Simulated assay, not measured.
Amino acid sequence: MLHIGCHLSSTKGFAAMGRQALKLQADTFQYFSRNPRGSRAKAMDAADAAALMELLRSNRFAPIVAHAPYTLNLCSNDPEKRAFAAETIADDLSRMELLPGQLYNFHPGSHVGQGIDVGVEQIADGLNAVLKPEQSTTVLLETMAGKGSEVGGRFEELRAILDRVELKDKMGVCLDTCHVSDGGYDIIHSLDDVLRQFDQVIGLRYLRAIHLNDSKNPPGSRKDRHARIGEGSIGTEALVRVASHPLLRGLPFCLETPNELPGYAEEIALMRKKTAEQEERV
């Protein structure tokens, strides 16, 4: 069964997001943990969070994904910015305990000239400072396109971070189809090989979510610009193979395509139809 959803606005509250997801025929979704370009966080409403948890249980949702702000950088060359990122993540994880068992995704960061090795070490240090044995949330490192000084454009970089994290059972990875294609992994023609490489380097046990996006750029461009399903260089056929792959069955798939809600509804319906057809042929 395909668990698919999209990115929703949290301005009206958690239960409202769940109801919106149901209207879109979704059974997972992603939302920003706070202002994606800033640091402000809306106060958590325990009753609202409990209402969402009941909706998730009663409708058999896959885990949902909270996305950290893009501005956080655990491997900045500025110690104050690194400390701010760690404090923000720690606050988000504390607040997420009102939504037990869900996922928290973040971009590993940019080393801004310090080098990959230093960036990896600083990211791991930041995670070791905020992860707690008692937390129920799994923290996801997102695969990146490798533009500029981004950390996470290669599977080996994510593995190096995981190797240095003490509480590995609190960690996972979110694979973004646009990012890995732009990063040079051939998910169009060699999906099985890419997943085999992921397993060999990181381990499929760490793969906990998928960002399902087409790309406005050719494979290997290292640029990262998302496109609607079927309107980019990856294409519908290849993305259907991702969504219907047996090794990925049961994971939450979240659309981050440039869409309003009607467009997301169309893409969710399209992917459900196409993956069902694909599974019938196998």
Rank of each mutant, 00 (worst) to 15 (best):
H3D: 00
G5P: 00
G5W: 00
C6L: 01
H7P: 03
L8S: 07
L8K: 11
S10L: 15
G13P: 04
M17A: 00
M17G: 00
G18T: 07
A21K: 03
Q25E: 12
D27W: 00
F32A: 05
N35A: 13
S39P: 06
A43E: 14
A49F: 03
A49H: 06
A50C: 05
E54R: 15
L56P: 02
V65L: 01
V65R: 00
H67K: 13
A68E: 09
L72V: 04
C75A: 04
P79C: 11
F84M: 14
E87C: 15
E87W: 10
T88N: 15
I89W: 08
A90G: 14
D92G: 10
L103G: 01
L103E: 00
Y104T: 03
Y104K: 10
G109I: 10
S110Y: 04
V112H: 14
G115K: 15
I116E: 13
I116K: 15
V118A: 15
G119E: 01
G126H: 08
N128T: 08
E134R: 13
S136A: 07
T138M: 08
V139W: 01
V139L: 04
A145M: 04
G152V: 09
R154H: 14
I161R: 11
I161E: 10
L167N: 05
K168M: 06
D169H: 12
D169F: 05
G172N: 05
S181Q: 08
Y185I: 07
D186W: 10
G203D: 10
R205S: 15
D214F: 02
H226D: 02
R241G: 01
A243W: 02
H245R: 10
P252M: 02
C254T: 02
P258V: 09
N259M: 09
Y264I: 05
L270V: 01
M271N: 11
K273G: 06
K274H: 13
T275S: 02
T275K: 08
T275F: 02
Q278T: 13
